[in-house]
């Protein structure tokens, strides 16, 4: 038997318990999402069902205003990611290239901002947004998510930047390129994998965040996906489980696709000196 095949079998055998545990909830979601409502509570519970009801998805889409929530989630996740990156790149560059007074303090500050969970700060954050007049505005989430993600993005980027040889930029200066110019033309293209990784981290955090979105957003037109789906469950007298699960499936699929598409980037980005 070829050794690669043997190795693959051993590896899959080792991974299989975990794979089962990971796929189990997804399977539950899927079979619940496509069954008719009167088969939600059969006894004994079973995986099978009488008819495959794609209609559940369509009904759910309309009933839970899914399209708008999807748009809101995209809006918040994308913009907060962009903002976090725009602010993090120069900061990370400074950290990796220049000495400056207070550098140690700045790093400590970054680590400390990681320690505060938004749940703990939710009241204060809310008071802040009231003062800014931004309550009920999706942009309040963009600002908060970006701020909370920045510690991680700066940190990741700076350790990556440190691995990019300085000579390249210096060579460009000698050629007469301005500092900014060399940064944009030479340095940034090299940093793309790291930026992709940090962008994914930031995007996922925004996509899945719940407590702040629940607190800041007023009108149900502005709900993000987690809030919209949770509101189908939380304290209702009638929970329409097939719709809840259909919503969850639809909210998960895009991220899963992005994952499988970007995973090479993801790992390469992590690899090239990500965290040191």
């Amino acid at each position: 038997m070829p050794s690669k095949l043997k190795k693959s079998l051993i590896y899959w055998a080792f991974l299989s318990p975990l794979v089962v545990v990971i796929l189990f909830p997804f399977a539950v979601m899927l079979v619940t999402a496509v069954r008719p409502r009167d088969e939600l509570f059969v006894y004994p519970p079973r995986w099978g069902f009488s008819e495959f009801r794609w209609d559940n998805f369509a009904e759910m889409w309309v009933k839970t205003n899914f399209g708008e929530a999807l748009f809101n989630s995209l809006y918040v996740s994308v913009l907060s990611t962009v903002l976090a990156l725009v602010l993090s790149i120069p900061a990370a560059y400074a950290l990796s290239r220049y000495p400056f007074p207070g550098k140690g303090a700045y790093r400590t500050f970054l680590l400390m901002t990681q320690m505060m969970s938004p749940i703990v700060l939710v009241l204060g954050l809310f008071r802040l947004m009231v003062a800014l007049g931004m309550v009920g505005n999706l942009n309040s989430l963009v600002l908060t998510y970006a701020a909370f993600n920045m510690a991680f993005t700066i940190w990741m980027l700076q350790s990556y930047f440190s691995t990019i040889p300085r000579d390249l930029e210096e060579a460009a200066w000698i050629d007469g390129a301005s500092h900014l110019n060399s940064l944009i033309r030479i340095f940034l293209p090299l940093a793309v994998p790291a930026m992709a990784v940090t962008a994914i981290f930031s995007f996922i955090n925004g996509w899945n965040e719940f407590v702040l979105a629940l607190t800041m957003i007023r009108s149900s037109d502005d709900f993000t996906l987690p809030v919209q789906i949770y509101s189908q469950v939380a304290g209702r007298y009638q929970v329409e489980w097939h719709h809840v699960m259909a919503g969850t499936v639809l909210a998960t699929v895009p991220v899963a696709i992005v994952f499988s598409w970007l995973q090479k980037y993801l790992i390469r980005g992590m690899a090239l000196g990500a965290v040191k």
Partner: peptide
């Protein structure tokens, strides 16, 4: 949502809105 109504009102009142 019902389960989060009290939290929401608390934050609203604490925030003065």
């Amino acid at each position: 949502p019902w389960d989060t109504l009290l939290q929401r009102l608390t934050t609203d009142i604490a925030g003065g809105v």
